[in-house]
Design a protein around this nucleic acid. Structure first.
Lengths: 346, 346
DNA sequence: TTGAAAGCGCTAACAC
DNA sequence: GTGTTAGCGCTTTCAA
């Protein structure tokens, strides 16, 4: 492992001063074409590559052209699409992107964020976990820009790109109500995830509009995996009065519900996923657009990095209820077998 | 935007020398607890964060604790899972990860790789696109470690983590042959992707074992999207002698085949995907394990970074043929209408 | 058009 | 236990 080449090496090789090399590398004027050619040649011969860290050190105040992006789980297609959009936006601006997954752990998030800041990132796109993010404040005071996406951050006034989770969840529930469903179950991922609790609020609100209350038996929260969601659905369907419809709070719980194989119960899930339209029945969902969210967050971040100091903005992107079949399974058939008494009551 | 805090600021605030601050920050011995406490306090008050770039500059020869990872498309679940595994391995070693997508463009790859090298990455995990990668050689000569994953790299002797694409594709085709299929179509993504052409070779080889040759009419290569794959399948099925089985060369083409809605034709795809087992019929696949591939690549890279100078290694991870139903659709029904005799009739 | 000197924030090596 | 000096690779400033 030989040591890395420096401008000194190039200068020596080309028989010029280090300063001339610098000028050539940075395309600055005032170098004879002939001299420049000699330098270029030396650069090629030695495989020299500018050390941006050293460069950055001297050009104090200039951006490092690095941003950090911290998502919940990069392996989740939703966050992967979001990350890809951020990366595209960054590349267009000649930025590189540090990536990390918090895995919904505040400690891990803090650790990764610290590592990003130590590399002097100009900005951070953050899918924050629950908990206090006061530790971000001092970095922001020193000039690092932060934009939250998918979730807002606790106790910190920063730009955010969100969707209206309550309304979107409400749309899903309303859709089920319109099909005649009254016994609608809620399948929730971890409760401490902001999006999930918002969706629960939306779920309850729309039931409330109809004078209904969520049946505690039909509300299953804190499901941490696809398998747990599947088990929960199996239990629900084994109840004396099973639900006629399910609202699943995210992609994982939706897949769990599908795993459980209860095809006759109506289902609307939050988040779209590949091939949802090819299942039997095709799965109805409320969808958000992760690429658009990532793109918007990047846009916001780069405008801040470029000096935009206007008050923090909140961007609410739209969602869409996509009816495909699973949400249009009628309530009647099941309701009849379900409990004549209960049905009569409604 | 105030300027960032430095050790100087902390030293002044704590009334000590900058060297004492450095010792405290780096947990070096030989500082009175009392002094250390004063420094710690100042650090907290100022929100000081060590500048790792400057640190790295002085500790020449020491690793920067940054690696780069360049995949084809981060939004593709296969690469997302791979990236996540790399990230986990990196975090355990207190490394951060720069991410990029090449989008199958050599220019874009070169651009991103250059940006990574300029940041002095200790290593690079690369899913190389087609074309010469000579430009990597000079960086490697200067000590940057490179590991290729999913695909080998042209004209460069580096560590690689692959699967035996020929054999895996052969397994799929053999499986179809065992079900009696003889008219098996090949649906291929871009031809210049190494994995795809390898799979085609495997496809032909196993047909050859049976004394068969691929029917040019049934070989569709260069399909660049799910939609193109769907259209190709539709065309195939409209042939006078349609195939009785399809072998799709990756997840995108598999999904395209599913989109085309020809449920009666047998199908085995390369790469598993979410809910493949829940489709009608459930989709049979040959699967590789992207997380394992990413993990193995990271392992290899970090052992190189730690000084392992043994000759380049090639790691071949295993694949698995997963029969779920779509690959077990019998050939008979269709074959009848299909046989040479019947062909004459048509 | 080119170069010499200073210094970015930090740490290695050596004082005290 | 603490401080001083020098210098990492680069760019800024100023001189030639």
């Amino acid at each position: 492992m030989s040591t890395r080449r420096t401008m000194r090496d190039v200068a020596q090789e080309a028989g010029v001063s280090i300063m001339t090399v610098s000028r050539v590398i940075n395309g600055q004027p005032g170098v004879l074409p002939e001299t420049a050619a000699r330098v270029e040649h030396a650069i090629r011969r030695l495989g020299y590559q500018r050390n941006d860290a050293a460069r950055q050190l001297r050009r104090r105040g200039q951006p490092t052209q690095i941003i950090g992006m911290l998502v919940d789980d990069l392996a989740n297609p939703f966050f992967a699409a979001l990350a890809r959009a951020v990366e595209d936006a960054a590349r267009q601006r000649h930025y590189v992107v540090l990536i990390g997954s918090s895995n919904d752990s505040l400690d891990r998030e803090r650790e990764v964020v610290a590592a990003f800041f130590a590399r002097q990132v100009d900005g951070l796109i953050l899918v924050p976990v629950a908990g206090s993010h006061r530790f971000l404040a001092s970095q922001m005071a020193q000039g690092t820009k932060v934009v939250c996406v998918d979730r807002p951050v606790d106790g910190l006034d920063v730009d955010r790109v969100l969707v209206d989770n309550r309304r979107a969840a409400g749309d899903a529930v309303r859709h089920l109500l319109e099909q005649g469903h009254r016994r609608i179950a809620f399948l929730g991922d971890r409760d401490d995830v902001w999006t999930i609790s918002e969706r629960y609020v939306g779920f309850c609100a729309v039931l409330g509009e109809q004078g209904l209350e969520p049946d505690p038996q039909l509300v299953r929260r804190g499901l941490r995996s696809r398998a747990e969601a599947a088990a929960a659905v199996a239990e629900l369907m084994a109840l004396p009065q099973p639900p006629t419809a399910l609202f699943t709070s995210n992609d994982l719980t939706t897949m769990g519900a599908i795993d459980s194989g209860h095809g006759s119960v109506a289902l609307v899930g939050f988040d779209d996923f590949a091939l949802a339209d090819k299942l039997t029945p095709p799965v109805s969902v409320v969808t958000q657009d992760p690429a658009a969210m990532g793109g918007a967050a990047a846009e916001l971040l780069f405008s801040r990095i470029s000096g935009d100091t206007s008050p923090p903005r909140e961007l609410i992107l739209s969602t869409r209820m996509v009816a495909r079949g699973s949400g249009e399974v009628p309530a009647t058939a099941v309701t009849a077998a379900d409990s004549p008494a209960a049905a009569a009551g409604q």
